[in-house]
Design a protein around this nucleic acid. Structure first.
Lengths: 137, 137
DNA sequence: CCTTGACCTGGAGTCAACTCCAAGTTGTAG
DNA sequence: CTACAACTTGGAGTTGACTCCAGGTCAAGG
């Protein structure tokens, strides 16, 4: 698979793919005799994983660390497992924040909808604060 | 509440709080006669919201837009409601990616744990690719 | 063989979101 | 009234993650 095809498959730029390889977010990609990247199944899996974990907010630095350990071989199994567990916690934490934001958003959107339907607006309906505080007064 | 107290409450730096105010992520904060920030309940609510939505990956740009609309008054109710709904979709999309990453991670961690328990390691157990492809061969 | 378009590399540039700094002001304790 | 810590501003610097570019190479069509 050419770099272009991988770009289209994952909707990502060639520059980003080359960058990932250059800094070690993915291991070196298979090349043709002429030195042109020829993404094979395994290369594509690394790309897919990289994109997946980047999309979940994992820093490039951590992906590099994982690839580095992977390339060092079987002696790094424990370290890799720990890295993944740490990543799991990080992502769970982050997702919790998304849930909190969604809750807040749903509450606000609800208030806006009431305001829109009734045509009645007040600080309490559309402010970022009043309503909530009023409740436990 | 002083800037320091707000920093401690939300575990954020004073520079970030001033930056948020400067660029309009939050409206101007109440000041003392001498010009020192005195965060009142409403100011704190804006801070809390800003942090919450930033934590959910909302760009500063969008928070600025919301505050701008809010300051323009009741005529922007619809625009604000739309902004919030758009934000909701964005956050839902992002959270989906977190779920996918978590699924992938759990699968990998599971494989690593088996490898660690049995002491048997193979490409299939610890690689980022082989196992998955093997399944549907 | 020659052109033309996709690909290559190393390095510089950009962007969002802070983060740091210098030079000056405020406010409290002694 | 004087230290001195905590605050202020405007502006410059940093960081992470790309993104762009110049100058050169590869490969398929004519």
């Amino acid at each position: 698979m050419t770099i272009k095809e991988v770009c289209e498959k994952y909707n990502i730029t060639a520059d980003t793919l080359r960058y990932y390889e250059r800094v070690g977010v993915i291991p070196p990609v298979t090349r043709t005799a002429g030195g042109i990247r020829d993404y094979r199944d395994q290369d594509i899996d690394w790309v897919e994983n990289a994109i997946c974990f980047r999309d979940a907010g994992m820093p490039v630095e951590m992906l590099i660390e994982y690839v580095k350990l992977f390339q060092e071989g079987d002696t790094t199994i424990d370290a890799r497992a720990n890295l993944l567990k740490e990543a799991r916690e990080t992502i769970l934490e982050a997702r919790k924040k998304y849930d909190i934001a969604l809750e807040k958003l749903d509450y606000k959107i609800g208030r806006y909808e009431i305001a829109q339907k009734t045509g009645i607006l007040s600080w309490d309906d559309c402010d970022d604060s009043g309503a909530k505080r009023k409740k436990h007064q």
